[in-house]
């Protein structure tokens, strides 16, 4: 027999644990973040607007958003294929491949950065193949996309896997017995069912890619106005003691992060909140 949840639990320690959690979170995260917003207020609206609309900042933001969008799209497509293959098919080495998916989470971004740069350099394993085609992967916007695709992949795969596992075969059988071809079943039955999870994974990969720093700075070459991403511009301005400029871009990135967090929360509620994984 289950009682309706009581407001006052018999368990002890509520005040202590909640108090500690709130105080800790305030000291470590909330107060320093408040410092950022207060600092940016010193600029005023006009100053803020002026700072974030200089050609250099605009170019950096365009590159960050554009490359993050492209990378998240690549991940949505290939991440779907990977998640599908891993949940539906049995093949040699499947468990090893499955364990490897989290590599971009586990590998420090600086290591990913120098490794990707070495591979895609004109003398590298993959760069050598791209060079005769006239494709320049390192020190170009393409390099940024490559790095962001690498770090975003696990978000899509890990969000889709539980959703694909939860799909009931009976529904697909029903579709087939009603005369649907496999392709139709996929488009009309499977895809709509996993669409929320796919969108969540896409949003997670996009949000992560927007703020990514370590894996990008080595491969991008950091040419102002060409291959300079927004987080790098913050670092550059900080090194030149331009605190106001750095703060303005940081506020912009932080606001976008908040919005993405809200979007992702809404998407997760839509998909039932059960397919939300991704670190």
């Amino acid at each position: 027999m289950r009682w309706p949840r009581r407001r006052h639990s018999v368990l002890p320690g509520f005040g202590l644990t909640l108090g500690f959690a709130v105080v800790y979170l305030s000291l470590v995260a909330l107060i320093p973040m408040a410092a950022l917003f207060l600092r940016s207020r010193g600029l005023g609206w006009g100053g803020f607007w002026e700072t974030v609309t200089t050609p250099r900042v605009l170019a950096a933001c365009r590159l960050s958003f554009g490359a993050a969008l492209i990378a998240a799209t690549i991940n949505a497509v290939f991440g779907f294929v990977v998640a599908w293959t891993l949940t539906r098919y049995r093949f040699f080495g499947r468990r090893l491949v499955d364990a490897l998916i989290d590599l971009p989470f586990a590998l420090p971004t600086a290591v990913s950065g120098i490794a990707l740069t070495t591979i895609y350099a004109p003398t590298g394993w993959l760069g050598r193949a791209l060079e005769p085609l006239g494709i320049k992967a390192v020190f170009s916007p393409l390099g940024v996309v490559i790095a962001l695709t690498f770090i975003g992949l696990p978000f899509v795969v890990r969000t889709l896997q539980p959703a694909l596992e939860d799909l009931e075969v009976e529904v697909e059988e029903a579709a087939a017995s009603l005369g649907a071809r496999r392709r139709q079943t996929f488009r009309r039955v499977i895809l709509p069912a996993v669409a929320p999870a796919l969108l969540t994974g896409f949003a997670l990969a996009f949000a992560r890619a927007l703020g990514e720093y370590g894996s990008v700075v080595f491969i991008s070459g950091n040419l102002p106005g060409k291959t300079e991403i927004a987080p790098l511009l913050i670092v550059t301005q900080l090194e030149q003691y331009d605190y106001e400029g750095a703060t303005a871009i940081a506020v912009l990135l932080l606001v976008v992060s908040f919005v993405m967090l809200l979007v992702i929360n809404a998407l997760q509620r839509w998909s039932g909140g059960r397919h939300a994984r991704g670190a």
């Binding site: 703020g211 987080p231 670092v235 750095a246 703060t247 990135l253």
Partner: peptide, 11 residues
């Protein structure tokens, strides 16, 4: 997790 690492340092 949602904040850019660079922003985390900046604050």
């Amino acid at each position: 997790l949602a904040v850019s690492p660079v922003v985390s340092g900046l604050i």
